[in-house]
Design a binder for these strands. Structure first.
Lengths: 129, 129
DNA sequence: TTCATTTTACGAAATCATTCGTATATACTT
DNA sequence: AAGTATATACGAATGATTTCGTAAAATGAA
C-alpha cells in the first residue's frame, strides 16, 4: 500500500478547509469573504494560501473559468480524526476520557446531543461487559 | 480585573509543560531526558526553550542552586481547557458532541472511564430534563 | 476602444518556532 | 591546582507560516 504522510493543515489552512467543507467547492472570493467575517485578512493572502494548499495536494483547482474553483481533497472526518489524535496526545497525554470530560463539562451541549453520546456509550460498553 | 491574554504554548512548549505537570518542578536536565525518550533533541535546545518560556511567563526559574529549577506557572486543567476550546473551534467548528463522538469512537477507553463519562452525562442531563 | 474592476501570478518581507554552536561560569575529581 | 564534566548565556541560522505589494491577464462597462 502506498505510504502517504498524513497531511497536517496549519491553522490558517484549516480555516480554509472548514469553509470548503461547509460550502463545498468555492472560489477564492467566497472563501475570502467567509474568513473576513472572523478577522482582518487581505484577498491576496487568502489566494496565496489556497494556491499553496493546492501545491501541497490539499485542494484541487478547477481552472476552466477565470475564477478558479477550489475543492478540498481532504475528507472532513478523516482529517478531524487525525488532528484529534495528535491533539489528544499533545494536550491530554493521550487520555480520551479526560478530554471528553472536559469537552462536555464546559460546553452547552443539547439534550439531543447528550443522548447521541449516551447511545454511543451503550454500544461501546456492550462490547466490554 | 487585569486582562491577560490567554497564553498559547506551542507544540514544543506543551511537551515541556507536560513533563513539568507530570513530574513537578524540575531541572532542565530532567526535562531534557524525558523529552529524549520520545525524540532526538539537543540539551541546549531544551534549555533555550525553557528560558524562553520563563521570559513569556509560563515557567518560573528558581536560580538559587546551580541547576536552576523550573516550575510551571500555567495550571494543567485551565490550560487544557483553553487549548481544547480553541481546538474545538478550529477543527470541529465548535461542536463538542462531534468531537466527543470521534474521540470515543476511535479509542480504547476502559469500562471504568466510560462509566465516569456516563455519570457526567447523568449529571448534565439532570439539569436539562 | 478605453477605462475600471476582478482575478491570478510571482516574489519577497515579516513573523514565529525551532535548533544548535560557542563561550563562559560553576562544580566535581584526582 | 589542573583537568573534566555540567550548567547557563548568548546569538544566530534555519525553516515554516503568514502576509501582502506589485504586475500582468481577463473581463465587464461606458
Amino acid at each position: 500500500m502506498t505510504l502517504e504522510k498524513t497531511p497536517k493543515p496549519t491553522e490558517s489552512e484549516l480555516e480554509i478547509l472548514q469553509v470548503l467543507w461547509q460550502h463545498g467547492a468555492s472560489t477564492v472570493r467566497l472563501v475570502h469573504e467567509e474568513l473576513s467575517n472572523g478577522k482582518e485578512v487581505g484577498y491576496t493572502t487568502t489566494l496565496k494560501l489556497m494556491q499553496i494548499m493546492a501545491e501541497k495536494g490539499m485542494l484541487e483547482a478547477d481552472k476552466t473559468s477565470r475564477s478558479h474553483i477550489y475543492r478540498p481533497l481532504l475528507e472532513e472526518e478523516k482529517t478531524q480524526q487525525q488532528l484529534l489524535d495528535r491533539f489528544m496526545d499533545a494536550a491530554f497525554r493521550g487520555s480520551a476520557s479526560k478530554l471528553v470530560m472536559q469537552a462536555l463539562g464546559n460546553s452547552n451541549t443539547s439534550k439531543e446531543e447528550l443522548n447521541e453520546i449516551r447511545n454511543l456509550l451503550d454500544k461501546l460498553e456492550g462490547g466490554k461487559k
